[in-house]
Design a protein around this nucleic acid. Sequence first.
RNA 1: GCGCUCGUAGCUCAGCUGGAUAGAGCAACGGACUUCUAAUCCGUAGGUCGCAGGUUCGAAUCCUGCCGAGCGCGCCA
Length: 583
Amino acid sequence: MNIFKEFQKSIKDIIASLIEAGKLPPDLDLQNVTAEAPRDASHGDIATNAAMVLVKQAKMNPRDIAALIVLELEKIETVETVEIAGPGFINIRLKADFIQNQIGEILKHGIDYGRSEIGAMEKVNVEYVSANPTGPLHVGHCRGAVFGDALATLLDYAGYDVTKEYYINDAGGQIDVLARSAYLRYLEALGEDIGEIPEGLYPGDYLVPVGKAMAEKYGDALKEKDENEWIDDVRKFAANQMMELVRDDLKTLGIEQDIFFSETSLHDNGDIQAGLDALMEKGLIYTGVLEPPKGKLPDDWEERPQTLFKSTLFGDDVDRALKKSDGAWTYFAADVAYHKNKMDRGFNNQIDVWGADHGGYVKRVQSVLTALSDGKAALDVRLCQMVKLLRDGEPVKMSKRSGNFITLRDIVDEVGKDVVRFIMLTRKNDASLDFDFAKVTEQSKDNPVFYVQYGHARVYSVMDKAQIAFPDIDISDDGLSKADLSLLSDESELQLIKTMINWPRVIESAAIAHEPHRISYYLYDLASQFHALWNKGNDRLDLRFIIDDNKEITLSRLAMIKAFSKIIASGLGILGVEPLKEM
RNA sequence: GCGCUCGUAGCUCAGCUGGAUAGAGCAACGGACUUCUAAUCCGUAGGUCGCAGGUUCGAAUCCUGCCGAGCGCGCCA
């Protein structure tokens, strides 16, 4: 239950009834009326800007409008006090018992407490990773993988019907390179001395087993043949092997996508031509010559007529080519078909997660979707910035030439899935991120992963101790929800509960903004409040969770921290991090 | 030259899509704690939100122009 949303609705209802009663003028636009938790706790629990938003429309003084609304708000059962403050804010303070009783709500719903229905089961497609199947995943893919996966889970939690998808670029020239590289390893597996891997081919060791597998499958059947005789088979074979590798890599991060969509299939079944036709029908295709790019001119520039899409009509800088000058399809043409395909599958809501170096590509793909759907379908592209790998503050050196770059698996093996996932989500996607192997595994307050997980584990350790102090108590969710919650009266306890009540709102805003990092920040904040409360118990014995001679108050506090653990667990669940019961 | 992303405390970053006196964590400074509920705690200081205009009751947030950083810029993928 999102109490802010409920109050927002109540406030709008109140305004509507005031209009009906003739106290406010008709036809007011209530769009911008909000109800949110004020930054400053002294401003109460919920604040609304209603009066200020209406000033201009109603042509009234904000405090007069506020006074009318306050009179009605005061009638609400759960409201303790209402006051007008500052330039016209209305600050609402809730009754303590209402806040305390939310603990019961949380325990009742458990890790589903924050679930929302704002998504209204609308279909959303989240496409992420989509790395070329030419080798194992490396650091660069890692962030997008975690981001996309967490975003998908978040949207699911917020009530969307989510499909997680991977686009396999198995059609381009890089697959030919892969095939040739694999063929070399095949010869090697047959006992030939292949020497140094030539420039321009993939040198990585990961192709050795592919060569062996080919040798097993084909024997020496491909050995004496010309490239054009084996390349189709080898391409397919090697790409499949690489996708297996990719899937395994993703599994180490706990990622399993629903659909793996092959670019080749678009070529094979005519979807690309269909995409072109669809754009043509809208009159958006023409044959023309593009202006040379400003600034540095490519050496081999010459004018060539191409099949172009009028993406400039949708805000792109230049029109984009769908066919190369030799008539072959561009990569973009496949992307037109792919996004059209997603649209045809009912996804008017599409999200692509890309590396920041693809930023220049965003507008043209969005243009396609806007054009084909007449604006009904939208594509949000989330660009993930670089991850800088560090070890004790020093950049980790990577040599790409040897093919021995740092892989996703290397990182997961060293620090573990949970750490990778959490840390990757401690920054906005469009800010670059430092990943320091030394810091992320540190067991201290400075390390957010540890701090949040420790909060969760701490609850379980308290539960164990409580069971020893009071062997007859029922510490199940159900049992604890029967505790006398009115005993949770200390200001810092109420503050913790208020932060917990914010959870549903955090979910919704993070989901709408497509920003899973907000979850990490919230969890850190919540955990630090919990730890602070715990620490208070050092000085003030009466604030400890377990009070040996007071079973009632112990039960109420156990209920509170159990509820806390539920929210941590559900938040970590969205991030894909294990909520540990002991550390 | 153009486009995209960004610019917030000494450092690393949040800032709930326009709200109130801009917040955390490191680092700095000042205290507390010596085994208690292991993996510290409390407090202080630190800011022209890159700069200059504009819109608004109200701007870190929106619009314009500069400055600076990263990425990209006809057929690669």
